[in-house]
Design a protein around this nucleic acid. Structure first.
Lengths: 245, 245
DNA sequence: CGGTCACTTGATCGTCTTCAATACCAGTGG
DNA sequence: CCACTGGTATTGAAGACGATCAAGTGACCG
């Protein structure tokens, strides 16, 4: 009933001097490349901050002065064309590292969907960290490489897949989210609107809605609520997503 | 995969132990992160090879056993769907580093367009190099970051731009290729076929042809030969590419 | 020459978009 | 309790952009 009252509050002996030592997301982020004994270095480099839903904490085109590590909430990353057309290039959650671009300006806007908490590193302080901890650089390279692979997969989706295949791909990717082992979930919640999905898949709201309805009438999925998805026929969905028919 | 790989010593009849010392593309690749005094280490880790036009030296889905540094020629990188639909995720030339994916299999196929020469690093030997030369890891991270930015730009193109905007974007990007300073070339050659351009822009051969013809009849470009492009009105082309009208 | 290959051009088709109406749901205040 | 409101989702009808199908051109080459 009252989680806060029943949960034992673990206090760190060092107090507020070393917040990174008590950071719950360290294990799932690039920060775990810093040895525990050196966490003070990390704490000194990071500045925490937060962003309310609908507000952006990175703005496309603005000078890229800092890097971010998401410690709470979720955000969408998007690029805009002058006339308002929008392409969402990714959804990010806890542990995600942002702003890797070496260029002088941010390549995308990052807007909070749920309240976002983050750690902020200035270019200079991150550079110093990386100089002193090559393991962190290794970790960042691994992260960037994986994102590059994901981006190429998304290019295939945007360039060559049909609306049906895009939606199926998206749903199956969501089903796999946060599931470490093989089995994707059969029931999950979509934390974004139809508009967000559309701008992520290069389609329109109406096409998303129609395609979901079609998949539902075919018995492949169920949609108990607008944001709830139940996959009834995983194999068929995977086949549509992979275009392997 | 009908490419040929040999140890550099074999290709190096005059017996020098470090062919990397005479490598003309070192300056423009990640290899310049290795100090000149340690080039023997680099030479020992690399195995040179080459691929004839039309043949692939990386195959999507195959176990990712090595990394490649292009030292000559150009190649296209693509992903395939089971039914043959193809998405080209990039064109690469001299100095480009390939295979960064941390996953166990290659995410794309790399096929030579012009005769390709490359240096090949096994996972283990590259790892050893990176452990010993953090500067190289830094360089790779910078490269990966920049590619990520480019990939996101391509997502915007594939997801939200019209055929006309895509072709204009592509042409202006080609005009800027290999030009360090601000001014893009007004005349250049396209090293790829219409089919390749189509699969890069998520369109068809016919649409590429029609769109180029339209741009020509409008006086924005000239097409002296199928592979020659002369930009007559750069400003207008940039505006179309950026959708800023 | 006949053959192939790449490109161009034309006619038709289909998928997805656009425009528009309606349904839904939560929050608010009468 | 119920109308009002604004944001979100669904559904329908019409339209457009790019795909597909098909024919024709030109270059290169054995």
């Amino acid at each position: 009933m009252n989680a806060i009252a029943t949960r034992p509050l673990v206090l760190d002996p060092d107090g507020a001097a070393d917040p990174c030592a008590r950071c719950g997301v360290r294990a799932s982020s690039v920060c775990d490349a810093i040895p525990t004994s050196d966490l003070a270095r990390l704490s000194a480099a990071a500045v925490t901050g937060h962003a309310a839903p609908g507000s952006s904490f990175i703005d496309e085109g603005e000078p890229a002065t800092a890097f971010f590590n998401i410690t709470g909430g979720t955000a969408k990353l998007y690029k805009l064309l002058p006339d308002g057309r929008r392409q969402i290039v990714g959804f990010v959650g806890v542990g995600h590292f942002l702003g890797l671009a070496v260029s002088d300006t941010y390549a995308f806007t990052a807007e909070a969907m749920e309240p976002v908490k983050y750690c902020r590193f200035s270019r200079a302080s991150l550079r110093r960290l990386l100089d002193d901890f090559p393991a962190m650089e290794k970790k960042l390279l691994a992260v960037a490489s994986n994102e590059l692979v994901a981006a190429q997969e998304q290019m295939l989706l945007l360039g060559r897949k049909t609306a049906r295949e895009r939606v199926a791909s998206f749903l199956m990717a969501q089903a796999r989210l946060g599931v470490a082992c093989m089995a994707p979930r059969s029931h999950f919640t979509l934390p974004m609107t139809r508009g967000d999905i559309a701008d992520y898949l290069g389609l329109t709201i109406e096409t998303i809605s129609r395609t979901l309805t079609k998949l539902r009438t075919e018995g492949l999925i169920e949609i108990p609520g607008a944001t709830d998805i139940v996959v009834k026929n995983r194999l068929a969905m995977e086949r549509i997503a992979d275009a392997s028919e």
